[in-house]
Design a protein around this nucleic acid. Structure first.
Lengths: 340, 340
DNA sequence: GGATGCAAAGATAGCGCTACCTCAAAAGGC
DNA sequence: GCCTTTTGAGGTAGCGCTATCTTTGCATCC
């Protein structure tokens, strides 16, 4: 038996060569047939696919990536994983990309630009097939890394209009303005804005300011921003703080539902009537928003649709197809409930 | 210029060869120096590392995976991404593994055994360095895939005691029993169990049944199980259903906080006093549990600790270290609030 | 009918890295 | 002092796949 390679490192893996042998074609033809590229006779394609199915062949992604410098991995960067809002987007992305043969590598930036840059540096070296990042708030170096990597990239949750930028999201500033205007239209005058400092909250703040200024109601003292990560508890704390500081406020627009939820709870415990004394509004329309006491007025955007559309756009980009609509605005909806 | 390779496919990538050249050693020595394996003179190691740092060299994971049949990817399978409970676990796993040079590939099984088997089949072909899966409820084929892959695997959230099985979690059946016993101790007699059908909920159900039988209070009619995914709204619906069906119940143990939250909301709207008429309890201690009306009695387990310990255990396994404690029980805590 | 074109299949040569083996030099043994 | 043994470095040969070039086969044209 001189078959034994002197330098064997056989992995026992089922390879393309096995499939090719079974289909009685060359490995290259088998490769082309399975990938659906180049010109291969339909009859051969069928034979190869059959052989692959019979052998239960699964291509080796590492070998594929090495040979083609393209991998079947899509990297998704989100600011946090414990917020269900991002979970929903991720879930939709996963649902679209998985059946297309892509895997999802997640990166959690913890709302940190440094962390995001670090993740990009590392993950782009994996030559992912595609990249999905959250919003546009990142440092120059991170931008450069994305651009120079040549990896197709889609931005989610926010919108921007510059050439070569692909994004799926909603106009958060506009939505913030809509909410503030709604509160104004309900006769509220001393409307506070309470937020955690994150990029999307800051866009909502812009909309709030515009609406307040347009109505001649803007008072910078009514803005309360926190650098601590959002939580229900934080919302309760911030509610107590803003009420103590400005007893005259008649409405509070929170940058997200978690905070608003905490505020509703605190109001209930303090005997402050919502919405009679103070109207409260949130943002995101998490499921719990419909089940707070009282139910929360908020802004709804379909996170599942954002994820789905972003994944579809990325798929098109990765396949070199033309994307006619590089900016997809999924819109938003003001959900009026009892809290405001 | 006959340097031009006839068959060049140069990627322009910075390779190990460049680092080796700069450090004036052979590529193999450079490889060993960077990986810290084999015997390399300390002086050379320093020179190679310096060269790598100067060139800003990042190894190609695909080439590495192909050559060594080990990748720096850890696959994590969870039942859903939109539930913050799993997000918390994922976040902790990510926090531990990222600094160690591992990336996280997520798979969402949607609570489906078939989907999980499918994911395993595909993802294991990536030769991940490690695998983290949720619980033990999977089909034979999935089990076989994990075992035969040779990939180190840690199970999270549930506990099991069989040789060669690594897990980090808590005893959910025991916790379920604790909750039921608490309700019994408070004088409740007609205690319903309302759940969605998922593996962990079924373990909690076991504990509930044991407690009820031990107290001579078990009545199978008081169990209401739903095949629909859990949501707050579902909890409200199930509450109305169980109350209509069994007007005599004096407590409900829900398999998770979402359902209990919906029930509290429905009770409020129906004018049913909690806990006076019906006590309500949940499971998970999501943040919102402390802010429902009334606040929810529930079971707490540290999801962050589960993720952290699981990642640390996997790290040890991947590095071939001995793991002295293959079963880590992080415990649970009964959180008593006003709802029960 | 021979030149021309254009498919469709195959041969070749890596992608960037590491497992395995070899070899020179240094260290140890009697 | 000669023969082992150890040590540190390098050489070689792939890992499994695909980009690129080459060859083959067969319609098509003047």
């Amino acid at each position: 038996m001189q078959e034994n390679k002197r330098n064997g490192r056989a992995t026992g893996r089922l390879t393309l060569k096995d499939v090719a042998a079974r289909a009685e074609v060359s490995p290259i033809t088998a490769s082309r047939a399975l990938r659906g590229v180049g010109r291969v006779a339909p009859e051969l394609v069928a034979r190869v696919k059959e052989a692959a199915a019979e052998l239960n062949y699964i291509p080796d992604p590492a070998a594929r990536a090495l040979a083609s410098s393209h991998s079947s991995v899509v990297t998704v960067l989100v600011p946090t994983l414990s917020n269900p809002a991002f979970g929903d987007v991720l879930e939709a992305i996963h649902a679209v990309l998985l059946p297309e043969g892509f895997q999802i590598l997640i990166g959690d930036t913890h709302y940190s630009r440094e962390q995001e840059e670090h993740l990009l540096r590392n993950y782009l070296s994996h030559r992912p097939g595609g990249l999905i990042v959250t919003g546009f708030d990142r440092n120059e170096e991170a931008r450069r890394l994305i651009a120079s990597s040549g990896v197709p990239c889609v931005h989610v949750l926010e919108l921007a209009n510059s050439p070569g930028v692909y994004c799926v999201g909603s106009n958060q500033a506009e939505a913030g303005r809509t909410m503030a205007n709604y509160l104004i239209s309900k006769g509220r005058r001393r409307i506070a804005f309470v937020a955690v400092i994150d990029p999307r909250a800051m866009l909502r703040a812009e909309g709030y300011r515009r609406a307040m200024k347009d109505a001649g109601l803007y008072d910078p003292a009514l803005e309360l921003l926190s650098a601590v990560p959002a939580s229900i508890k934080l919302g309760a704390d911030l509610f107590r703080e803003i009420v103590a500081r400005h007893p005259d406020i008649d409405a509070i627009f929170f940058s997200n539902d978690d905070l608003a939820h905490g505020a509703l709870f605190a109001a209930l415990n303090m005997g402050i009537k919502v919405p009679e004394q103070i109207s409260i509004a949130g943002y995101n329309n998490l499921e719990e928003a419909a089940f707070t006491v009282p139910p929360l007025t908020t802004i709804h955007t379909s996170r599942a649709e954002i994820g789905r559309r972003a994944a579809q756009m990325l798929l098109a980009l990765m396949r070199g197809k033309r994307v006619d609509e590089p900016v997809v605005d999924v819109g938003y909806e003001l959900i009026v409930r009892e809290s405001a």
